[in-house]
């Protein structure tokens, strides 16, 4: 039975600035939903609410028709941040963190860490200091850390921003592979339109905290319904 994420009328304001204005969307497992939009459009705020890191001012988040509080969301989802954030520990300890706090035993943890590192082609990096790795390698560790806990909702905030093409390709392939293997809901925030076109099963265009368009990628790029979407695709909107 497919899992189902719903956000209903989500609003969030930061110091009188409306980051999200009555946003509603839904996503099912087995595909990638891309959130596209210029910087400051509300993508990251939306992801942070889905991850349970922020509480919306209004609206609710439902998973399989059950209302979820932020602490519930933190147990079923995980987020990979745009900025590389590493614990000052070895790679294996970084990847094992989510498993240890969930109470997995040593053997299960070791197997999952090894599988997760292999999926991002970092096998053999277990005992390296995570903060000594390159930016691209750190982002792959972050992805492995998220994969290891096998979340029901995987939230990716610009995971390949500022990365070289080879690391970006490894990350994109790993994301595609994890969906086939674990069948989780993947929400990818990006302003890289080529990436959105390549990876997505569905595209949500968000602008000034509002959803403008939800469409199939081919449809979105060939025939955008909204004038702002058209200008965004042509690169006429300011970032």
């Amino acid at each position: 039975m497919p899992t189902y994420l719903q956000m209903k009328n989500i609003s969030k304001t930061y110091e009188r600035i409306k980051a999200l204005d009555s946003v509603s969307l839904s996503a099912t497992d087995g595909g990638i939903v891309s959130l596209v939009g210029v910087n400051g459009s509300g993508k990251t705020t939306l992801l942070r609410i889905m991850a349970g890191l922020e509480e919306p001012d209004y609206g609710e988040v439902l998973f399989d028709d059950r209302k979820c509080e932020p602490q519930d969301l933190r147990q079923i989802s995980t987020m990979v941040f745009q900025k590389n954030v590493m614990f000052n520990r070895k790679v294996c300890d970084n990847v094992a963190f989510g498993l240890r706090v969930r109470g997995y035993n040593k053997d299960e943890t070791a197997i999952r860490v090894s599988d997760a590192l292999e999926s991002v082609r970092l096998d053999g990096f277990e005992n390296r200091k995570a903060r000594k790795l390159s930016g691209g390698e750190q982002q792959r560790v972050a992805l492995a850390r998220a994969f290891a806990i096998e979340p029901k909702i995987l939230l990716l905030d610009e995971p390949t921003a500022n990365l070289d093409p080879s690391n970006a390709i490894i990350i994109e392939r790993a994301i595609s592979a994890i969906i086939k293997r674990n069948s989780c809901i993947v929400i990818l925030a990006t302003h890289n339109l080529h990436q959105a076109k390549r990876l997505s099963d569905s595209i949500i265009h968000i602008n000034s905290g509002k959803i403008l368009e939800v469409a199939d990628p081919k449809e979105f790029f060939a025939n955008p319904k909204h004038e702002i979407s058209n200008r965004f695709i042509k690169g006429e909107l300011q970032f």
Binding site: L53, Q75, S77, V85, R145
Partner: peptide
């Protein structure tokens, strides 16, 4: 300590004490 580390720990499922 990097403020993002707190978010990282939380998004990986850590309780407040963890």
């Amino acid at each position: 300590t990097d403020i993002d580390l707190r978010d990282l720990a939380r998004t990986l499922g850590a309780s407040n004490s963890q």
